[in-house]
Design a binder for these strands. Structure first.
Lengths: 208, 208
DNA sequence: CAAAAATTTGACTCTTGAGTCAAATTTATT
DNA sequence: AATAAATTTGACTCAAGAGTCAAATTTTTG
């Protein structure tokens, strides 16, 4: 293992890493703009300017605008799946697991520009299908937790899918009002949201 | 009051009414398309085709595409304000009023193509401001109900605005998944959503 | 039916923004 | 320094779609 070997192995890896990092930055910048102004109200030129580049340069990192939107979606979904993974398989009851998951999801979305985009229609066939598949997979995993909670008696009976749609709305609606640079604290939001979600589902006798 | 008088008074009125009705139809058709595909993925030509017309004809009823989007927003907000008006000033406590309002809101949005659009960014200055003002007015009215509920002890204490954002998300998220032609019953959705919202807010001691 | 008013259209212009590409520039390698 | 590889750019093409308008068509009215 001489210097030569080290270089031929490490250098190219670093190169790719550099490239990949810059690519990420592009997706990031685009994502923030998309969140604020929407996909179609954000031009490639704008995205480039946010990075001190020229539109043409972006195409060195990315196939086209649609791919950027796709990756934006994916980036969040990946993070969400990571969260689900972390909280999986505890011996807690359904409601408890859901509580932890939901709380972390809110925290995830109130941090560093990571945010759920809702514009799926701007993706063509293949890509759109991919995103929807991914979204449904996540919803399915959360639904499964809810179902488990209903089965173990911790969550009030009801249509599990509806149950999930209800509080997923809160997450998706975040983009419309939450300002990362504002004075609202992500953790405080997470706390109140989580309590509201949890109390809405807890299976106890609630007086009229 | 001869025939002449009747005509000069009635006819023009009817004319305008016809015109206004067709205008409404344009907004309606556009709104449905916007909901499904988004504003920018819907061309004026498509909207026209949905009505058996030509793009050019639309401009007889409407100033431009932006105006259509504006009216789409307004149409829903108007209906929502109507609902709020209906339930106003009962002697009920805050939570009760909120329950009725919310239930009716869900029903409103699961009926006849009336649906909340989220794309505000595609509106320019004046129009955008108008829509946001209207939206905030509605949120303020609902927030006021929540505040009253917290004051009279029917709703769990907390940041009222956060409280409202949470369940307003459920309404806005409806568009993403609810299919009017599907087999889900609007009333059933309203029932479960309302229960979930209400339980989430009810001010009782909830065990861990 | 004829005149007038209302409605619709075909064919057009214009702008915006995505995407391309050969050449220039910068960075790494020997 | 010279060469090669990576990165960036200016200047371009191209398509889509919004909006216009004079003329054609349809509807209403007297």
């Amino acid at each position: 293992m001489n210097a030569q070997t080290n270089m031929t192995i490490k250098e190219p890896f670093n190169r790719e890493k550099q490239h990949e990092n810059k690519r990420r930055a592009v997706i990031r910048a685009a994502g923030e703009a998309f969140r604020r102004q929407g996909y179609h109200n954000t031009s490639m030129t704008e995205i480039a300017q946010a990075l001190g580049l020229t539109k043409a340069a972006l195409y060195y990192y990315v196939k086209n605008k649609e791919e950027i939107l796709f990756e934006c979606h994916l980036m969040v979904y990946e993070a969400m799946e990571g969260l689900l993974e972390i909280h999986k398989g505890g011996d807690k009851d359904g409601l408890s697991e859901l509580t932890y998951v939901f709380s972390d999801l809110v925290k995830l979305l109130t941090r560093d520009g990571l945010s759920l985009l809702t514009d799926v229609s701007s993706l063509g066939g293949e890509w759109k299908a991919g995103v929807l598949l991914r979204r449904r997979a996540i919803e399915a995993r959360i639904t499964a937790i809810v179902e488990r909670g209903m089965a173990d008696g911790s969550i009030t009976p009801g249509d599990p899918r509806l149950t999930v749609f209800f509080f997923m709305g809160a997450l998706n609606w975040l983009n419309a009002w939450y300002d990362p640079d504002g004075r609202m604290d992500g953790d405080a939001i997470a706390d109140q949201f989580t309590r509201q979600m949890r109390n809405g589902l807890k299976n106890i006798v609630i007086p009229d």
